[in-house]
Nucleic acid binder design. Structure first.
Lengths: 198, 198
DNA sequence: TATGATGATGAACACCATGTTCGGTATGGT
DNA sequence: ACCATACCGAACATGGTGTTCATCATCATA
């Protein structure tokens, strides 16, 4: 887990990660067996266990890569626009863009195919970002800060899922607009049309 | 799956369901094996397979019970208040009350312990309810109706999870109030406090 | 209360994934 | 060229799976 230098080890790890990805896309995480992974990656059984303790370990490890990529995308976006987006929830845009690039992977994670692990890990990563984005949201007595964070993350995932599953035609910025609207203003405007039949 | 009449069959099914519940609470769904279930339920291996095709089948089946209970609670609540709650999202209150009664089970489902199956099944049940509650929400060009449904369900689950995991002391009606506020008005009010350091 | 039907039992089965061990081989860094 | 180290692959014990079958218990009726 510490400093990996040897090329052979790197090769092996990459092979295992991409094998797991292919398999998740093909048959889902739960249904994927370690046997499948090492077959797909052409790696010896003992080699696998030399690197990871099991498939969950392998998957969790993969999310560190995602975290890094997202952080970079974040920085790049911020630099590109001269730091002009201090808007609330300014980070979401870069996220939707990133998701557009890896639509198949995100779709697998966000649909059921990544198992509980993927969802909870994704939530964890997103929570970090959102928490950074809401540095001083006042904890008005009504709704606690942590609940707001969870709410924003939940909305992000809802829009993301809906986008990838049912409206893949939309652009990232369109999806982002819907996210912002829901997260900031809620669904009140779309709901208050109840027939108040006296 | 059809008409079950024989007492013996009913006994067996009940035993299996409650065994699965105990085990999910104790060690989580994924970690629970069929062996565990039939041991806990004191039921023969072949008997299990005579009723269900596997543990997933058993769990899915259990959610039909939940659906029925929720529907009843719904009807009861509506009857109790002389149909006075035509408010938007009026159904949520009964749901939080119900959750308070089975806090441990809900907690297991909503945390990771119920596996992907439980979460997706719970989402399905809740989506039905929400869809019924938003009969004619206008599909304003901005946000599609189905997205609104998913958003409301997501918010419901977010608040539910946060409540059961971190603020179990709150009353159902307090949790419900937070849900309403977030679902209807979003988090804008809690967020627009960014330090706009020029 | 006797009876036929149906459900439950539990042992036995082949099958497959798991996680570990170990002697041997190939490839890396220097 | 050397040696450390990563990989290999076969073998192993373990444990869960899903099925079958003969036997026994319990149910619904007459």
């Amino acid at each position: 887990m510490a400093e990996v230098i040897d090329r052979r080890a790197l090769r092996t790890r990459k092979a295992l990660h991409s094998a797991l990805m292919s398999l998740i896309l093909r048959k889902g995480y739960e249904a994927t067996t370690i046997q499948d992974i090492i077959d797909e990656a052409d790696v010896g059984r003992s080699t696998f266990y030399g690197h990871y303790t099991g498939k969950e370990d392998l998957l969790r490890n993969g999310f560190q890569i995602l975290r890094r990529e997202l952080t970079d995308a974040q920085r790049a976006a911020r630099a590109g626009t001269d730091g002009a987006q201090d808007e609330p929830l300014g980070f979401s845009r870069a996220m939707f863009e990133h998701a557009a690039g890896y639509a198949d992977v995100y779709l697998a994670m966000v649909g059921g195919r990544g198992g509980v692990v993927a969802i909870s890990e994704l939530r964890k990563v997103l929570s970090e970002f959102v928490r950074k984005e809401l540095p001083a949201a006042r904890d008005d007595g009504a709704v606690s800060r942590e609940l707001v964070v969870q709410f924003v993350v939940g909305t992000l995932l809802t829009v993301l899922t809906w986008w990838l599953e049912r409206r893949p035609g939309l652009t990232p910025s369109q999806a982002d607009a819907m996210f912002r609207r829901l997260a900031l203003n809620g669904a009140g405007a779309s709901i208050r049309t109840r027939s108040r039949v006296g």
